[in-house]
Nucleic acid binder design. Structure first.
Length: 222
DNA sequence: CTCCCGATAT
DNA sequence: ATATCAGGAG
């Protein structure tokens, strides 16, 4: 078994092999990864993902039942009263930005996309409040397509810990990961690392003793 | 790069 | 008290 300092000196070819080993181990552990957000149509999923910025899925699921009861369609959100929307989503944080983005996003869906949520990265990120992370979530979770890798706070943190990138920005990290990891693993890499980050490789206290891939990690602390 | 932001865990 | 949570815009 390589020591952390030995892993840090690996070649790029060795890094590719190590990353594939890690993906395979984690995808075996997390069989059918899917979002913890509750939704019943693509619009609800899109709104939920926007609300989930810097907020737990659990918290989002506490506000969406009321939200989706009052707002049923793209039209409803496009015409929403900003104050009313802010009050409903208040507890998810960033509520002013989120309310503004949700309204602008649905106005764009109405104006530019005939009230149909688009299914390509290019179209999705043209929507206000939708960046690559939100688009990647929607593409993998709902459209069953792979155009990139979901890089949220967990994927960003763990990718750095594993030595797959030295970037502190999600968009740049996604590029590093797309170069390193085979496309067929992109979907699993994103969703598995999120589950892995929540339960084991936590931001404050990574549980290296219980970790399945600690022997492949340059940041392990045992 | 900074700003936006409440709820929760530590 | 402070770090963290399925980020995006300016």
């Amino acid at each position: 078994m390589l020591t952390p300092s030995e892993i840090k000196k690996e070649s790029y070819a060795q890094k590719i092999i190590r990353s594939e080993k890690i993906v395979k181990i984690l995808s075996k552990k997390y069989k059918n990864p899917s979002t913890a957000l509750t939704y019943s149509n693509p619009l609800q999923l899109l709104i939920s993902i926007i609300l989930s910025a810097q907020c737990t899925d659990e918290r989002v699921n506490l506000v969406t039942p009321k939200l989706f009861k009052l707002f049923n369609s793209i039209e409803d959100f496009a015409n929403a009263n900003k104050r009313e929307l802010e009050q409903i989503i208040y507890s998810t944080g960033y509520y002013r930005n989120k309310a503004k983005n949700i309204i602008a996003c649905c106005q764009s869906l109405k104006l530019n996309f005939n009230n149909i949520i688009p299914s390509t990265m290019e179209e999705l990120i043209s929507l206000p409040g939708v960046g690559r992370k939100t688009a990647n979530c929607l593409l993998t979770e709902y459209f069953n397509k792979t155009e990139g890798i979901v890089v949220d706070t967990h994927v960003l943190r763990i990718s750095n810990r594993l030595g797959f990138t030295k970037n502190i920005y999600a968009v740049k990290t996604e590029i590093d990961l797309m170069n390193l990891i085979k496309k067929k693993y992109w979907r699993f890499y994103g969703s598995d690392l999120i589950l892995f980050g929540r339960e084991l490789c936590k931001a404050r206290s990574p549980n290296c003793k219980m970790c399945l891939v600690s022997n492949l990690c340059p940041s392990r602390n045992i």
